[in-house]
Structures are given as C-alpha cells and as structure tokens.
Simulated scan of single mutants.
Amino acid sequence: MNVAYWTLAALLAAFYLYGGGVKAVRSRERLRPMMGWVDDMPMAAVRALGAVEVAGAAGLVLPPLTGIAPWLALAAAAGFTVLQAGAIRVHLARGDRRIALNIVLVLASAATVATATTWL
C-alpha cells in the first residue's frame, strides 16, 4: 500500500500544486478559458481556493515524508475528496456537464485516503 499511496499522492500533489498555483496568481481573464466558473465567484475566493489546493498538495507529501503529523496527509486527501465533490456540484449547477476530470479526482483522492489509513 505504501507504493500505491505515494503514486497517488504524487500525482494528486502535482495536479493540485499546478492548479492551485494558477488560481493563486493568474488574472480572471487568463483563468476564464480553462475555468469558466471563475466569473461566478469573487477573485478572493478563487485565490483562496488556489492557496488551499497548494497547501493540500504539500499536506499530501510533506507529513509522511518527514514523519511529522502523518495524519495530515489523510486530512489533505479527504479534503480533496470534499473539494472535488463541491466542484462537481458547481459544474452541474452552472449547466456544465463536463465533470469527468472531477470524478477521476474524487476517485483518486478517495483511494489516497484508503491507502493513507494503512500506515497511520
């Protein structure tokens, strides 16, 4: 399970580090082509979401790597599961049916939760 955790955690961390970093620094105009929902939210919320995603990416990797509070990795993975469930809700509320990536991310983060519980 250790290999499964690290594989999933590395992939999720890379995805959220990039996605969160983009949300944290790009303007609304530069985000709009890939994230149409930014028009429905204040930029402060988009920036906060980006910061949460970057912190969560660090939370998936750093605690188990350092051995300091490794339960935080479980919390980060669970948080990403909840985050993507909310993202699916936002997409569907906007009439956007392109939620395949969100479903994959829910499943990947849920699997990360499951694999993280084996070494806690």
Rank of each mutant, 00 (worst) to 15 (best):
V46F: 01
T66R: 11
A44C: 02
L107Q: 03
M41R: 13
V46D: 00
L101V: 09
H91E: 05
R47W: 00
K23D: 13
N2W: 13
T118R: 14
V46N: 00
L62M: 10
A87S: 07
A4C: 14
R47Q: 02
V106E: 11
L11Y: 08
L62E: 06
L74G: 02
L107Y: 04
W37M: 03
G19E: 07
L83F: 15
T7C: 13
V106Q: 13
M43W: 04
V82N: 08
V52A: 11
L83M: 07
A69P: 09
R98I: 11
A76T: 08
P33N: 06
R89W: 08
G19V: 12
M35G: 00
A13Q: 04
R28T: 01
A76G: 11
I68M: 15
A78C: 04
G56N: 10
L72K: 06
T115N: 08
M43T: 12
S109T: 14
G79Y: 05
R89D: 10
L120I: 15
I103Q: 14
M41E: 06
A78Q: 03
Y5F: 15
Q84S: 09
L49F: 13
V61T: 02
A108W: 12
A48I: 03
V90P: 06
L92T: 12
G86P: 00
N2V: 12
M41V: 07
A93H: 07
E29F: 02
D96C: 11
G95R: 03
L8V: 13
A13T: 04
D96V: 06
G21R: 01
E29K: 01
S27L: 03
V46A: 01
L101P: 05
V38M: 00
R26N: 14
L17P: 06
L49M: 09
G95P: 01
R26E: 03
L107W: 06
I103C: 12
G67Q: 10
R94F: 07
A57L: 05
L105D: 07
D40W: 04
L105Q: 12
G50H: 07
V22Y: 00
N2P: 13
L60I: 05
E53V: 06
V104K: 04
N102G: 14
T112F: 01
G79T: 11
K23Y: 09
W71M: 14
T117D: 10
A10W: 08
W37E: 05
A87I: 12
G50L: 06
A10E: 14
V54H: 12
I99G: 01
A100K: 08
A51N: 03
W37P: 00
F15Q: 13
D40G: 05
W119N: 13
L11C: 15
P63E: 14
R98A: 15
Y18P: 02
A57P: 04
G67T: 08
L105W: 10
A77L: 08
